[in-house]
Design a protein around this nucleic acid. Structure first.
Length: 901
RNA sequence: GCCGGGAUGGCGGAAUAGGUAGACGCAACGGACUUAAAAUCCGUUGAGACGUAAGUCUCGUGCGGGUUCGAGCCCCGCUCCCGGUACCA
């Protein structure tokens, strides 16, 4: 037989696992055993398939799953597809085929690629968010949101009926209200509600987008099209009610700090005060939000956002023209314009004055676009002495500046935002910022000028999309505009089959949105209940809906009574949810924040048992690769680039002094994330064909730490491939195909090597340090490579340790060693400490911290004798001559350091 | 600007609790086997100096300081790279 027949082996074992359902997790697992739920962020089934960067995380979770199975855990390791949403629909539109068909085709291709990697998923739990019996439950959860409200006192969501009962008891005249009037009140409380709000409208995509889906250049994250603000009536989810809990509960999860930080920033909690200003000639006061109530005495002017509703009311006649012009200019600006002009402040005086409640001075009211309508109250008190933006504005328009915090000596700056004693502030003088804030808030509340408050950057979640390929809302609308939920037993509301599912895209930002479902057949669109006609909600849910809760459906995916049976949910989700969740950091805010929100709602309503969905999150790094551009700056196929000697760039790209050519033309080298756009993608299929997937798995893990981004270098693959070939050659005789394992006892030296390796492997696997784990196996093999036959007592543990990393070759050798069962549930080797004990210690002897010699002593030598041996070592003596020994340090088992002066 | 993360040989990386810096792999070089090549196996490989040699010494983890018997690791001050965020009051 030819050496290392990886193709036969891998085909054989993938078929074996599939037909034996080796990795199925039955619903009646022995719950006395510990559980481990390992989850990947499931992929979009895109048409282009995978490149080698995609499976990095999947390979890692697979290794963890296999390792945990060998450690007597019940492992839940499922996989599915996030197939609704824009990418799937755009692909379908581009190819002119129905999204249901392209989605299924793409899923099939991806399944093939995933299975070719030998990943140990329980494929019986496979799901797609587009499955009718999946999105039935997505709709069901939406109805739970619709039928709930947030009780601020109990700090949890409760069923809306309970609010109705409370209103009946406590709200005078409640029973006199009409159904519509009651519903209007309740709308202000429901966690899913309709509201007319300024939304991010993307005419090119024909849909609205969530704040999270818009880049800071004001473009759509998907497709990079311009996005405009416009008011529309849309479904919203009241995620802001959960702002504090979404922030606070980050404390209790084992997540990467950067991701926690990004979520905290997104929630953007800030503490401060509302302050009410009397406006001359107005009844109503003007309310501002400030984080620095302590600086109120230094507020020398006020600024309203140009969109603020009071602008028209307060503007004096002689300023009307200027204000109108400024407002028009501001509204016509896109976000990009605002950004590019952010250097100099602009604004217009309204002609109107307000009275500073602290000190009573008369201060002018301006409008300026550096104040945003979407944050706080859309109005600020400007304190130029302690705020950089206000300082710049005051300088441009020559407004007064009063310092209310004493800057340190020698401070020559402008606005001073640091701490210091209050000045020019009457009853606050001398207090530090924190004390002054608290005192001012007390005063504001006592004098009825405002109160302490908290605001957030987080907005409610815009939940409607004007697209076809999404979950229909289980909502009916009456002709009078009333809203009615579809009954639970009427679920699912299936997406109607439509020939023309394309969105109505437009270049005109003012064109009215026309959801594709408005063209659905009337038989679907119109529903009659008790003689009343309703039209179905024509928007669909955003892509994130399906991915918000898929981890729960995996637990019990066949259940048609509930999204998951209670006992199953308890077993797999208690106490801290998913035990390991691996995915890219790009989901830090969107998916992870939304999923946490839904989970908390379900928790409040008693449907899930853990506070957080994902107890431990891990971000794998990106795989990067060299890429090449021609003189026009266009990326060229990296595999076809050669160096000055005509060698493929792949072989020399990490060396200096190279110049590169593509079809004879010089090209420049760069380095970036692997992908289509840089034309530097490497397909796993290629590597599989040439080396096999055990090699691919090993190489991806051997490249470096899982969390680090690292360069792909096809050249380096031969390293791990040589290792596997060497394993094969050592275990299987080349010409006779005989297994080279004997029942001879292992030598002591071999046993020491084995147990040292087990100890290293176990700790490396626990901390997911797979690169060093592989190094340990390579070292072990070098230690036994010269043996003609390998003693079974060391051969078997070695194969078991190799198994999670390179499962196919391991299964094959395991079987040839005489085992009838798969090694998938064999026991992970255990360290026998007695083989770790050293009889002789090798110690380094340092003089003043520099290594000068080594000594070898029996392990039971006393400290004094060891130091003596070190001091008298011939190489050491030279460095001690003529010097006084001041100190002698012995670090047990490691070194001796002799300090001389 | 602000907030995170990082920088170790020609390259990817290792050093888990402050204790021999460079494990393991790639590349390169030398050797064995071979008619030859591939494959495989053995050896060398951070830089420099001295020595015929065994070897010895000096320097060395982005830069400059510090703490310590001892610093890649801790502290202070920088540089550069990557990610997030940006008039958020």
């Amino acid at each position: 037989m030819s050496e290392y027949p990886f193709q036969n082996i891998e085909t054989k074992w993938q078929a074996f696992w599939e037909s034996n359902k080796t990795f199925r997790t039955p619903s009646d697992v022995d719950t006395s055993k510990p559980k481990y739920y390992v989850l990947d962020m499931f992929p979009y089934p895109s048409g282009v398939g995978l490149h080698v960067g995609h499976p990095l995380g999947y390979i890692a979770t697979d290794i963890v799953s296999r390792y945990k199975r060998m450690n007597n855990f019940n492992v839940l390791h499922p996989m599915g597809f996030d197939a609704f949403g824009l990418p799937a629909e755009q692909f379908a539109v581009e190819h002119g085929v129905h999204p249901r068909i392209t989605t299924e085709k793409n899923i099939d291709n991806m399944l093939r690629q995933l299975k070719a990697l030998g990943l140990s998923y329980d494929w019986d739990r496979k799901l797609s968010t587009t499955d009718v019996d999946y999105y039935k439950w997505t709709q069901w959860i939406f109805l739970k949101l619709f039928n709930s409200w947030y009780d601020e006192e109990q700090d949890k969501a409760r069923p809306i009926e309970e609010l109705v009962e409370i209103f009946a008891d406590t709200r005078p005249g409640w029973s006199l209200l009409s159904t519509a009037e009651k519903e209007h009140v309740l709308e202000g409380y429901r966690l899913a509600y309709l509201a007319e709000v300024p939304v991010n409208w993307c005419p090119a995509l024909g849909t609205v987008l969530a704040n999270e889906e818009v880049t800071n250049e004001g473009r759509s994250e998907r497709g990079n099209y311009p996005v405009y603000k416009r008011p529309l009536k849309q479904w919203m989810l009241r995620i802001t009610s959960y702002a504090d809990r979404l922030e606070e509960d980050l404390e209790d999860v084992n997540w990467p700090e950067p991701v926690k930080m990004m979520q905290r920033n997104w929630v953007g909690r800030s503490e401060g005060a509302h302050v009410d200003f009397v406006v001359e000639g107005q009844e109503d006061k003007l309310r501002v939000f400030t984080t620095r109530p302590d600086t109120l005495f230094g507020a020398t002017y006020m600024v309203l956002a140009p969109e603020h509703e009071l602008v028209d009311v307060i503007t004096k006649n002689d300023q009307k023209a200027a204000v109108k012009a400024y407002r028009k200019e501001a509204s016509g600006k896109t976000d990009i314009d605002r950004m590019s002009e952010s250097k100099t402040k602009t604004g217009v005086f309204t002609g109107c004055y307000a009275i500073n409640p602290a000190g009573g001075s008369r201060i002018p009211i301006w409008i300026a676009d550096y104040v945003l309508m979407g944050y706080g109250t859309g109005a600020i008190m400007a304190v130029p002495a302690q705020d950089e933006r206000d300082w710049e504005f005051a300088k441009v328009f020559d407004l007064p500046i009063v310092r209310t915090v004493q800057p340190p000596d020698g401070f020559d700056g402008k606005a001073y935002t640091g701490d210091g004693p209050a000045i020019n502030s009457e009853f606050l003088d001398g207090l530090r910022i924190d004390e002054a804030k608290a005192r001012m808030i007390d005063w504001l509340e006592a004098e009825n000028h405002g109160e302490g408050t908290v605001t957030y950057k987080l907005r409610d979640w815009l939940f409607s999309r004007q697209r076809y390929w999404g979950e229909p809302f289980p909502i009916l609308r009456g002709e009078d505009g009333s809203v009615r939920a579809v009954a639970d037993d009427e679920l699912p509301v299936e997406l109607p089959p439509m020939e023309d599912f394309k969105p109505t895209a437009s270049d005109d930002p003012e064109a009215p949105p026309r959801p594709p479902l408005s063209r659905a057949p009337e038989s679907w669109r119109v529903v009659e209940i008790d003689g009343v006609k309703y039209e179905r909600e024509l928007n669909t849910m955003p892509q994130w809906a399906g991915s918000c809760w898929y981890y729960l459906r995996f637990i019990d995916n066949m259940n048609d009574e509930a999204f998951a049976a209670t006992d199953q949910e308890k077993y797999w989700m208690s106490p801290a949810g998913v035990d390991l969740y691996i995915g890219g950091v790009e989901h830090a805010v969107l998916h992870l924040l939304y999923a946490r929100f839904w989970h908390k709602v379900l928790f409040d309503l008693g449907y899930v048992s853990s506070v957080e969905p994902f107890g431990r999150l891990f971000n794998q790094g990106y795989i990067q690769a060299y890429a090449y551009r021609d003189e026009r700056g266009i990326a060229v196929e990296a595999t076809k680039v050669v160096n000055q000697d005509g060698r493929p760039a792949m072989d020399v790209q990490d060396q200096k002094g190279q110049t590169y050519f593509y079809e004879g033309q010089p090209v420049s080298q760069e380095y970036g994330k692997m992908g289509k756009s840089l034309k530097n993608a490497v397909s796993p299929d290629e590597i599989n064909d040439q080396y096999g997937c055990d090699t691919l798995r090993l190489y991806e893990m051997y490249m470096g730490p899982l969390e680090a981004s690292k360069p792909w270098n096809t050249r380096d693959i031969v390293g791990v491939n040589r290792f596997l070939r060497r394993v094969w050659r050592n275990f299987i005789q080349d010409d006779t195909d005989v297994i080279l394992v004997s029942d001879d006892p292992a030598t002591d030296e071999q046993m020491r090597l084995l147990h040292k390796t087990i100890a290293r492997m176990t700790s490396d696997m626990e901390r997911m340090s797979f690169n060093t784990a592989i190094a340990a196996l390579i070292e072990f093999l070098s230690g036994i490579v010269s043996l003609d036959t390998i003693p079974r007592s060391i051969a078997e543990p070695f194969i078991l340790m190799l198994a999670p990393l390179a499962p196919h070759i391991s299964e094959e050798i395991w079987q040839r060693m005489g085992h009838e069962e798969s090694l998938a549930y064999a026991e992970w080797p255990e360290v026998d400490e007695k083989w770790l004990v050293q009889d002789m210690l090798k110690l380094v002897v340092q003089v003043n911290g520099k290594v000068r010699g080594t000594i070898e002593v029996p392990a039971d030598t006393s400290k004094e004798a060891i130091i003596e041996a070190g001091r008298t070592n011939e190489k050491v003596i030279r460095h001690l001559e003529g010097k006084e020994i001041r100190r002698e340090i012995y670090v047990p088992g490691r070194l001796i350091n002799i300090v001389v002066g």
